[in-house]
Structures are given as structure tokens and as C-alpha cells.
Design a protein around this nucleic acid. Structure first.
Lengths: 153, 153
DNA sequence: TTCTCTTACGGGGGGCGTAACGATG
DNA sequence: CATCGTTACGCCCCCCGTAAGAGAA
């Protein structure tokens, strides 16, 4: 069972015809015949009833159609979500800030501007001393920190 | 995004290493490097951070991992469901029966035995005269019928 | 005869494996 | 130097398109 086969099968199910489906998905008609057959062999189940005029779905075919539509929808949903995540438009940032810096106006306005620009990014701000921040940055539980650094770090 | 790529990626995510994953899925290690790279290009997102010792997931990678597990689970669920459906172990049967035949003991016991044998098959029994049954059998809204037939049918 | 699905066959893209390379602790 | 990920390259499978075949209205 491959996404491509499901896409073809959905077209066949919705048009009630392998020929019509082949035009819809821009693939030669024998290719669809073959992929549907392979899908049936893979699932061990007849999915279509072939008539002289087009095809109709078996019970199993109807069930697969419903599932396949959901499956492809899920795939596009994942795509869009990952695209946003990858661009940093959504996500989560864990930020350490020393207590003293929390009250610095520049820091507060920086956070505010970031929130305005990327409203889908969740912020977790941890008030922490510089030492613990460094430790958590190293172990990855913080993404960034505003803190005092010794010269050597 | 293909099922195969998701399967590979899940193995990589769970082992934290492309090499280890390649042994787990019985595929040469460069093939996994390539498929993961193709998956990243396809989604337009970095999924892994490569270190000298293995790999770790980016935020997008973690998100994809969760979704991918569900997606593959869904696929196997569909497989098993369709397998049962294809064997007639579950499904629905629409049956027409003439009112007179409903009271024939043989008919009642036939239905009872069928129900016992295939408890997952839902029955819809329609009390119908022979004429309407024939009509609905032809249009497909009935799967079978118990009725009187003229000689020519 | 026409519309449909199926079968046959040859070409091409892509996935995989082997081998060589690069980087890091 | 051992281990891991990447790059290079050739083979082969499989998907596709074209062409021909079969069956039903």
C-alpha cells in the first residue's frame, strides 16, 4: 500500500471509471489498472467490481476509500504543519533569564516584539541564575539564555 | 513523503543513529542517509541534527516522528480491517424475504446459522414482495433475496 | 462499432549496495 | 584509529507509456 496507489484508487472510486481516473490524475490508463490490481493483491482483497461500463466499489473498496481519503488528508496536514515548524513560524522556545534581567526594559520589549512577530511560537521563560542556565543550555532543556558569562565560556 | 521513508525515519529516531537504524530495517546505511535527506528536501525542513556520534531530532523531526508512528499504525489497522472485510468476516448483507417465507422454519434457522457463523456480518432483512425484491436486486440495494421466480427469470 | 478494462513489451527513473571519503572524539 | 555520516557509481527493479487484445452494450 503506497500513497500513490491510494491516490489513484481514490480517483477511480470517485469517477467510477479507470479511464476517467487516468485522465484526472494524468497517468496512462493501463498504469491505473496495474496499480489497482497491485493494491488488491497487496491487501488480499477485491476492491473493484469490473463492469462493461466502468467499475464499482466492493464493500472492502468502499471501506478503503473512506480510510484512504483520511490518510491523504493526514499527509497534507503533516506537510503544512512541518513546513511551518521548519520555518520557525510555530513551535516552542525555552528561554532562561536571570532575575535581574527580567526587569530590564530592553529585555521585556525584545520578548514582546518576538511574540508579536511569531504569535504561534510558545515561550517558556525560566527565571534562573547564570550557572543553572549554562548547565541546562548544555543538556538541551533550554534553547537560549540571557545571563552573565565569565570570560572563558 | 512515502511510507518507506517514514519507516526508515522512525527507526532512525528511535535508535538515535542512522547506522543502527540501517541494521534494524535491514538496509544499507547510505540508503538511509539518502532517504532521510530526500524526506527533508520533500518537506523543506531539517529533521535531524548530525553529530559525530549519531543524530538527534530537530523540533520538526520530533513532530514528524509522532505523526509518522500514527500514520503507520493507521496503515496496519486498515490492512487488518480490509483483510477481514475481504474474507466476509465482517460487513453488511441486505436481504429481501417475502412475508410468507419469513415464517418458514428453514429460512429462520438458515439466518440463525449464518449469524452464528459470521457474527461480525450485519444483517438487514427487508420483508418485500417478489417483484420489488427483483427490482432492488437489479439496482444493487439488495444483496440477495428469498422470493418466488417466474420461469423466465 | 465503440467504450471499457486487460495484457504485452520496451524504455527510463530511482532505490539499493559496494566502495571510497570526510569528520570527530 | 575507530566510528559515524556523506558522496560516488553501477546494477536492477519497477513504474510508466504505447500498442494490441478481449468483452460487453
Amino acid at each position: 500500500m503506497e500513497f500513490r496507489q491510494l491516490r489513484y484508487f481514490i480517483a477511480v472510486a470517485e469517477t467510477g471509471s479507470i479511464s476517467a481516473a487516468s485522465r484526472q490524475v494524468n497517468v496512462a490508463q493501463p498504469a491505473l489498472t496495474r496499480q489497482v490490481r497491485l493494491l488488491e493483491e497487496d491487501l488480499g482483497t477485491r476492491l473493484l467490481e469490473r463492469h462493461a461500463r466502468g467499475v464499482s466499489l466492493t464493500v472492502a473498496g468502499q471501506a478503503l476509500y473512506d480510510e484512504a481519503v483520511q490518510l491523504l488528508d493526514t499527509r497534507t496536514r503533516i506537510r503544512t504543519r512541518l513546513a511551518s515548524l521548519g520555518q520557525g513560524l510555530i513551535g516552542k522556545v525555552s528561554l532562561g533569564v536571570t532575575v535581574t534581567h527580567l526587569w530590564v526594559p530592553e529585555v521585556a520589549s525584545l520578548l514582546r516584539r518576538y511574540r508579536d512577530r511569531y504569535p504561534q511560537v510558545a515561550f517558556e521563560v525560566f527565571p534562573l541564575l547564570s550557572g543553572p542556565q549554562l548547565e541546562r543550555l548544555r543538556e538541551g532543556s533550554l534553547d537560549a539564555g540571557i545571563l552573565y558569562l565569565d570570560g572563558g565560556e
